[in-house]
Amino acid sequence: MKKKTAFWLMVTVAVIAVLALILSETGTIPEWLYLAVLVAGFPLFVLFLGLWWMAREGDADIPFMGY
């Protein structure tokens, strides 16, 4: 995955989560929906964050296939 794609996916997930927070604070959506968004969004956010700030963008090393 390209660094840029991962970044934008991460931002999208974060924006959706914050939007859900605001909407649930104002009472537009029920609390369970907000929590469901977080349950789906948090893992995606963690992985995309990692993939985004992954050290290098060049080609991967030769995979380690055993001795």
């Binding site: 992954m54 290098r56 991967a60 090393d61």
Partner: peptide, 11 residues
């Protein structure tokens, strides 16, 4: 540290 490391999926 792990999140900074390069990542791929084993063959």
């Amino acid at each position: 540290k792990f999140s900074f490391k390069s990542t791929w999926i084993p063959a």
